[in-house]
Design a protein around this nucleic acid. Structure first.
Lengths: 214, 214
DNA sequence: GTCTATAAACCGATAGAC
DNA sequence: GTCTATCGGTTTATAGAC
């Protein structure tokens, strides 16, 4: 209902994503135009921890719809995967390597220090993996393999975000995109072949034919 | 020379790795038995920032030798890669998912807030990628492909660390290990085949035959 | 619901005795 | 070189007027 609550979560999510949990102060959230300090504690009586927990959940849901929109909007999965990685790379450049994963920094900070926040990050990551796995299954990949492949893809993306932000270069996400796309194509091709379909020149998995990003 | 300086860096490295830069206080470093507060400022007059910078460099060198020891100590690269990921997974469990990458948390925290520390993390990551690429080349992978593959492998490892710490499960690192090992085997096989060697049943890249972790 | 003033605790950093 | 006491500033969180 109230727009103030929403605005607080927006500003909080952005700051936590860029500077982390411990590195962002309540006064900075206030200064960034979120709301007055009193309003923050009015809507989030649990203080900074509650604010962070709800911010993690909100970011989790937003990124989930991003995954669904981009991958679900593509013609097939490996094209969707490529779109997602390319889009993430462009967004990195556009924001000067500030905006990558909305919860990764928090996740590492709280993993060994705050059990409740740790679980919140785990649930968000889990929902993204599930979504990606669902799209892979839609593309014909068996459930068990889809889950493993989705976990791998998210891990590769998260790691690429770290390396890209540190080096201020898109090199890592391009390398990762190539390899993840290859893994997805392999999984799909394996299914197609076992079903006897001939979707293309499968045998031998050519060393090239994936698309060269760099 | 002085053992105190070393001890300070040890304690600092551990705390920064587990709780991050902003989340770790100087007094906590003192409390953890590193040294007296005055001693810290005696050896690191630049304060917390200098302490962090040197800690990043030290962690970078230590992890570099770990990479060289484990991968270099294996009979071939893809076995070395498997050893490294398996070892990392076991270490995660042994430390209750506290010890993963020594600088990842710091890297995300400072990427958009502290230019000097950001560069320090970038150099550490770069040295690890170079080392891994060197081992891949030793295994016959062409230089350009080795660099890309090494970047991908490190990114996948880093991302797996995030997901494993968040979920308190080794599932992610196992999934990632399987796929990274597969990519390495592919790269090696491609070279062997182009050289006309017959190292095994290459054509068609069997859908199984990598080793099932989970 | 929103705001300001402020409390209480803690932060990084310094001074100076030893 | 090592230690303790402490400064000045900032932190999270609260109180209370509006």
């Amino acid at each position: 209902m109230s727009t103030t609550r929403q605005k607080i979560l927006e500003v909080t999510g952005e700051l936590f994503a860029r500077q982390g949990y411990a590195g962002t102060g309540m006064n900075q959230i206030v200064a960034e135009g979120g709301a007055a300090l009193g309003s923050i504690y009015h809507f989030f009586p649990g203080g900074k921890a509650q604010l962070c927990a709800e911010s993690i959940r909100r970011s989790g849901e937003l990124y989930l719809t991003l995954i669904d929109d981009i991958i679900g909007g593509a013609e097939n999965i490996d094209e969707g995967v490529r779109d997602f990685f390319l889009g993430a790379g462009e967004h990195l450049v556009r924001t000067n390597y500030a905006d990558a994963c909305p919860i990764a920094t928090i996740a590492l900070e709280v993993a060994s220090t705050d059990e409740e926040l740790r679980q919140a990050t785990a649930e968000a990551f889990g929902s993204w993996v599930s979504a990606a796995a669902r799209h892979l299954q839609r593309g014909g990949v068996p459930a068990a393999e889809a889950a493993q492949l989705a976990t791998f893809a998210l891990a590769a993306l998260e790691g690429a975000f770290i390396l890209c932000r540190a080096s201020q270069s898109t090199e890592a996400i391009e390398s990762v995109a190539t390899h993840v796309q290859r893994a997805v194509q392999d999984a799909v091709a394996r299914v197609d072949r076992s079903k006897g379909r001939g979707t293309g020149p499968i045998p031998g998995r050519s060393s090239r034919g994936v698309q060269a990003d760099a």
